[in-house]
Design a protein around this nucleic acid. Sequence first.
DNA 1: AAATAATTTTAGACAAATCTAAAAAATATT
DNA 2: AATATTTTTTAGATTTGTCTAAAATTATTT
Lengths: 219, 219
Amino acid sequence: MKFSESEENYIKGIYALQQKSKRVNTNSLASLLETSAASITDMLKKLKSKKLLDYKKYHGFRLNEEGNREALKIIRRHRLWEYFLVSKLGMDWEKIHDIAEELEHVSSKELIDRLDQFLGNPTRDPHGDPIPNEFGIMPEVNQISLKDLQLKRSARISSVSDQSPELMEMLNNYGIRIGTPIKVLQSFDFDGSLKVKIARQPDQMISGLAAENIFVYDY
Amino acid sequence: MKFSESEENYIKGIYALQQKSKRVNTNSLASLLETSAASITDMLKKLKSKKLLDYKKYHGFRLNEEGNREALKIIRRHRLWEYFLVSKLGMDWEKIHDIAEELEHVSSKELIDRLDQFLGNPTRDPHGDPIPNEFGIMPEVNQISLKDLQLKRSARISSVSDQSPELMEMLNNYGIRIGTPIKVLQSFDFDGSLKVKIARQPDQMISGLAAENIFVYDY
DNA sequence: AAATAATTTTAGACAAATCTAAAAAATATT
DNA sequence: AATATTTTTTAGATTTGTCTAAAATTATTT
């Protein structure tokens, strides 16, 4: 089965939201994809008729087996291209997401499997996210959000949410890379800000929102 | 200016036909793009309104300065990706055209210029076609169609029309590659067939249609 | 549990890209 | 030059993906 670019974007969006909550609802997908709720409903019908979705009117939806398989293919393509853009073309962290977003829709399996091999079968993309292998298996991840990291506990950055160039820009500013050591020194309930120590830099403050989008290995 | 995938395909098609005849007509573009004449007319209006086209109703059309510039960008992307697919991923001649056809629509200039550099600024794609540089300049070509090659004259394959996997398959069968020595021994008016000597192989017959789509260096 | 608020779906419209069939214009033929 | 043929354009319909506004449903609050 081949899917349109639009269909693929919805599938990917649903997959992403499923990681947070079992069932996904219309509005959250609408806000993720920056589209109207009505458009979501329209597409849900289509994806349901294509048997990718478990969907009950007014009661949320989720990808079925087949839908998840398809999502993992798209994610594999996206992350392999991100890896390519950084490791072979030397592009900056902030720029790769949008380009990979376009490249991911080229769906030749042979192309992607050969690219994978050419890149040396990487298991993590430049943001630290796991890359599904050609059978759709994700390497195991043991990571937690920085905001959930125990105080004073030494950890290392495992990945960062790859959705926004603006976040990338800020992380560069903090000197945060995959593997960078980090420790949470103090947590402020007022706004969720954290005082953190990044590598050997002086202590710094980081916002709650940023902390939510940064992940560390959980040993 | 950004163009839709569809617009880009029309631009590319017009550019290709312009190489044969000054002005392009509706039906020939329709047959190249395998679409209806009505669709061509619709798109001509659009491209004209976007100022890429010199178009007079009922009297053919051609790309203007701006249109040619755009066409060269698309061709550059296509050919660089073809080069990548063969030289880095080791894909077969026959398969690369269709994949490059999809990749070419990803239009980030930085991506393409970096890809170019990564590939070592190649000047010819795997079919032997010249790759425009980042300023849209095509390396000079001095090639003629095999069907126009003088009898008994030693030549080398410079390029082959890249439109069809079926042609690629047949050329592989003949042992024809870029750079392969070739000589026309005899020409048959009956159907335009040629008796040729390819490299050190025994003499072989090749159809007129194939000969039209094979090019050699014209010294 | 009734009223209010929030969420989701439907109805109907629109733009892009395509199509078929008919009309218009250009070209070729007798 | 009049007629026939070919080519091109127009008119109107269709599909995909989107939208807004209104209606339906579910959730929350008093």
